[in-house]
Design a protein around this nucleic acid. Structure first.
Length: 372
DNA sequence: TATCCGTGGAA
DNA sequence: TTTCCAAGGAT
């Protein structure tokens, strides 16, 4: 149990030995990844934004497509936002896509295309916090600054038996103070990336193998047989259940897709209109349809004729919300919509819109298939 | 500071 | 089925 304030109590020769063990292992066993072909800050920025809370194997195909479509920071800055969002479809945390493009615009417009080169300056860019700033600054510009992500938390919590709860925001400083004196003045970017590779292999969360780790001689939790006790992390609450009616409204021009608000869940993506069941006052099923019709008329100026779809159910779980959707069919004239940001979309054009995974589940439940 | 913001894989 | 996790940031 570490109770002293100063966690990093290694002598200089031990620090040097640790750096050598880590970097020597990295030199021989670094993962080959698409964004590691060079140290171009644009490549690092795009990959790091995609990798936030997202696994490497998921990101790889998105990164390759993104680079083919937006090869330079200028190309990304000039692209229509809908195009960027479509490229992000299925990757989740969609605000990352908008902020990435916002950051590209900042670099092109505010910095005249000349990249800010320190972590402090990089943090002024949209979507770039302390971790991502540290990654870009160290990898692309050689600044000696840590990149503290989940891997770094796990690796150093185990090496030093850190008892601070990594779920608490203030714990970041504990690790920052711990890691900085461990970093080599040369190759800070390789140091940070080696920690990431270590954290996803020998020191992973699910299948750690500290006995064969290149830094096992420096691993206090392995030495004491308490690897599974680290890192200390409090649990998250269960997802809250939300029930909605999903309106499947057909016209000669296609299905009605609504663009969701610019803030909140699935911001700016396209879905069937949802009616929150908790906001309906009806107590009988027959009255429910009347109230849905009335509420929707207020939103759209449109009169619905309900069609029996058998009310199929679709469930989708997010990190902190569980949606239970009941599909309600309706026919309508392909009228101009009054207040809703919505479009009539033929099934063959669904692929042009940025659709969240839950909408794709709805499509499947209805037997609606996109081309290709 | 605590909460919000997605998804797919693993056990 | 349930739970947790995986290269976080904004508010």
């Amino acid at each position: 149990m570490m109770t002293n304030n100063k966690l990093m109590d290694w002598p200089p020769e031990k620090v040097a030995a640790f750096q050598h063990a880590l970097l020597d292992w990295y030199d021989h066993h670094a993962r080959t990844l698409p964004w590691r072909q060079d140290h171009d800050p644009y490549h690092v920025m795009v990959s790091e934004l995609m990798l936030q809370q997202t696994q490497v194997q998921t990101v790889i195909p998105y990164y390759n497509r993104f680079m083919a479509q937006f090869p330079t920071v200028e190309a990304l800055a000039a692209a229509p936002e809908a195009t960027v969002l479509k490229a992000w479809e299925g990757l989740g945390y969609y605000s990352r896509a908008r902020r990435l493009q916002q950051a590209a615009k900042q670099i092109v417009n505010d910095y005249g295309g000349k990249w800010p080169q320190t972590a402090a300056e990089l943090q002024t860019l949209a979507g770039i916090g302390p971790y991502t700033a540290g990654a870009i600054a160290s990898i692309s510009f050689g600044e000696v600054v840590p990149a503290i992500d989940g891997n770094a938390f796990r690796v150093f919590a185990r090496l030093f038996k850190v008892d601070a709860d990594i779920a608490r925001p203030q714990t970041r400083k504990v690790f920052d103070d711990l890691i900085r004196p461990l970093m080599p003045k040369e190759r800070p970017g390789d140091f940070n990336q080696a920690v990431m590779d270590l954290g996803s292999s020998y020191m992973s969360a699910s299948h750690p193998d500290p006995a064969h780790s290149p830094v096992r001689a420096f691993d206090a939790s392995f030495r004491d047989g308490v690897v599974q006790d680290y890192p200390v992390k409090t649990k998250k609450p269960r997802p809250v259940i939300h029930r909605y009616f999903a309106l499947v409204i057909r016209s000669k021009a296609g299905y009605l897709l609504e663009q969701r608000p610019g803030k909140g869940m699935l911001a700016d993506l396209w879905m069937f209109p949802l009616i929150d069941m908790a906001e309906l006052e009806a107590t009988m099923e027959s009255e429910q349809l009347d109230e849905i019709s009335a509420r929707f008329a207020d939103l759209s100026g449109m009169t619905l004729t309900f069609a029996d779809l058998g009310r199929p159910q679709v469930q989708h779980t997010f990190t902190h919300q569980r949606w239970q959707l009941t599909l309600i069919g309706a026919d309508a004239a392909a009228a101009e919509l009054k207040f809703m940001p919505a479009r009539w979309v033929p099934v063959e054009d669904f692929g042009k819109m940025a659709l969240p995974t839950v909408q794709k589940k709805l499509n499947r439940a209805l037997g609606l298939t996109e081309p290709g």
